[in-house]
Amino acid sequence: MFVDTKSQRRASARAAPARRFRLGESRGAMGLLFMLPAAAVLLLFLAYPLGLGVWLGMTDTRVGRAGQYIGFENYEMLWTDSVFWTSVFNTLLYTVAASIAKFALGLWLALLLNRHLPFKAFLRAIVLLPWIVPTALSAIAFWWIYDSQFSIISWSLTRLGLIEHNINFLGDPTWARASVIIANVWRGIPFVAITLLAGLQTIPPSLYEAATIDGATPWQRFRYVTFPMLTPIIAVVMTFSVLFTFTDFQLIYVLTRGGPLNATHLMATLSFQRAIPGGNLGEGAAIAVTMIPFLLSAILFSYFGLQRRRWQHGGND
């Protein structure tokens, strides 16, 4: 998002000298003209809300009362707010743990699905299920799974004689963190798995045959052929996965609302809670704005990760 608005600013700066040429003679001017509608839409729906958010973060706006400019007061307050810092920690933990798990499990699943299996198409369709169910719905399902009294997990473990008391999945801070991460992983795996599967299918089988003849074991084939050839797509998938996870809201909001004791509050849920139920729009906006540096660094990271590697340059097949 943020990158978009930046590039627009750059584009309009470049446009000024171009206008001196006759339209139609200059590729640049024509290009700009054709870009205008899209740029307008982006400005209206992306840049404006973003700017408004940043502005709100510097006011003491409350629901129902226009605020005044107060500079960085909101941020100074947040700096000493332990709940805010807990949410930052939670968000990072949530993002890192869930992304790693999604990547590992998604890659594993993709490798399995890439084999010759009976009912291949059917299995691949099944894998997509968690992803096509609306988040709110699957969150409610997880809510039941994690219920303190009726949890099927507690029930099974009790029956197996492994535990004596029901686990308080969403009531205990540590369990709650683990629970929401697992729910997020469950939901996120299909995206990673199916995208990586698409990547796997672009690797010509003859490369594996060549590697087999060259003497590579299955692990070496993965290590020296599959993985390096998959890195471009891994970079794309993981960027998206990290961005989605970092800004996750629905799952937490349905499962725990940030509880217990703010143990599962993410920056997104905290921002919402302070702004809407709490009525403190300015402060909520400020929390949202503090997500920007994290997201920007994730984007920068992927920008370098996504750069075409040298072996992808040139040639045509």
């Binding site: 490369l207 060549a210 003849i213 060259d214 003497g215 992808q312």
Partner: peptide, 26 residues
């Protein structure tokens, strides 16, 4: 045995040197 494939099956992410050296490295 060594095999030469119709589509060459060169490892695209390895240099010519590494392509040729791969079996020896393994």
């Amino acid at each position: 045995i060594a095999m030469v494939f119709q589509n060459y099956a060169l490892y695209p992410h390895m240099t010519v040197f590494d392509n040729m050296a791969f079996s020896l490295k393994l």
